[in-house]
């Protein structure tokens, strides 16, 4: 075990993937010599060579479109889109082709590729650098979507994503890149996609979250604890497929549900979870389900970003309301 932050854990995952399987390739803007703008791919080109860790032209659709071809021809490309707010030129390739190739050919071809992309706000960045776009991909049949919140999960989930037989969009919350260090196994390990994690068990209310909001929820747990509220916190980790079973079991126990995400509210993942739990757990519920989310606004420039992003205080305040309902 070694102390690693998320950057180091992701770097370790990519190292093991490249070492384990000669069909793994990394490609993207600045991923080679420069080691990526966040240093996630640092040292990998030097170790594995320019044929494995490839600097590409500034061309998001080119990166993803050619990754589709590489994947069809037997490679496992791990493409980096420098910020999730710049993924849109590649959107057509992801939605119209990567997500559909297996279905369209009834299994003759598939696209085992990963698109890694930094996401979400809280780092005082320029416009387009702080977006939470996961719902658009979750809504697309044929794609898997992952967003870790800890170094250990980041490593294990990225390795699962790379060796998954289908396309995975892997969101990396920038704010968490260097925020937390924890013990991470140095060697190869996988954490299965589609499994949520109970961060802290609790009695009175279920809090479901992911990405940047998990550390905020952990802080909120302390605030709630002081008020005598025992909340259960679930980190979804995989957003598609989604582990409804863990959420259902938790709500069955607590009777209350709060969903916390940074992305805008309307048709955010919280909407889908709320609807599904309302259908499946109606007899368990003792209070309305609540969503604590970003707003249906453009992500503001950094002066106001912390008003957009749910804070631990706002989370605790809203959760307390449904507990006292």
């Amino acid at each position: 075990m070694t102390q690693m932050n998320m950057i180091q854990a992701l770097n370790s995952a990519l190292f093991h993937a490249l070492e384990k399987d000669s069909s793994v390739l990394l490609l993207g803007e600045d991923v080679g010599l420069n080691g990526g703008v966040f240093r996630v791919t640092e040292g990998l080109q030097k170790k594995f060579g320019e044929k494995k860790v490839i600097d590409t032209p500034l061309s998001e659709s080119g990166i993803v479109g050619s990754s589709i071809g590489l994947a069809i021809a037997g490679f496992k490309p791990v493409a980096e889109i420098q910020f999730s707010g710049f993924i849109y030129p590649a959107f057509d390739q992801l939605i119209s082709h990567a997500a559909r190739m297996r279905n369209r050919t009834r299994g003759k071809y598939s696209c085992p590729l990963v698109v890694r992309t930094p996401c979400s706000g809280g780092v005082r960045a320029l416009e387009h650098h702080s977006e939470s776009t996961e719902s658009i991909f979750i809504h697309t049949p044929g794609l898997k979507v992952v967003m870790p919140s800890t170094p250990n999960d980041a490593k294990g989930l990225l390795l699962s994503a790379i060796f998954d037989p289908d396309p995975v969009i892997f969101f990396e919350p920038m704010k968490l890149y260097r925020q937390l260090k924890q013990e991470v196994k140095e060697d190869f390990f996988e954490i299965p996609l589609g499994k949520a994690k109970i961060v802290k068990p609790g009695e009175h209310v279920s809090m479901v979250s992911f990405g940047t909001m998990v550390p905020q929820c952990i802080k909120a747990l302390e605030l709630l604890d002081k008020k005598g509220i025992s909340a259960e916190l679930i980190d979804l980790r995989s957003l598609s497929p989604l582990d409804f079973e863990t959420i259902q079991d938790s709500v069955h126990k607590t009777g209350r549900l709060a969903i916390v995400h940074e992305a805008p509210r309307t048709l955010g993942l919280g909407a889908e979870i709320a609807a599904t739990i309302a259908e499946r757990n109606v007899l368990d519920l003792e209070a309305p389900i609540t969503r604590i989310t970003g707003f249906d606004t453009i992500m503001p420039y950094y002066r106001l970003e912390n008003d957009f992003i749910p804070s631990s205080e706002r989370i605790a305040f809203e959760v307390e309301k449904i507990v006292r309902f």
Partner: peptide, 24 residues
């Protein structure tokens, strides 16, 4: 043969990726 591609002009990139695999 890849499946016929309906969104105009999107698939030449797939050809590039496959050709790139051959080169690698």
């Amino acid at each position: 043969i890849l499946p016929i591609s309906v969104p105009v002009g999107t698939h030449p990139l797939h050809a590039v990726g496959i050709a790139w695999a051959f080169k690698l």
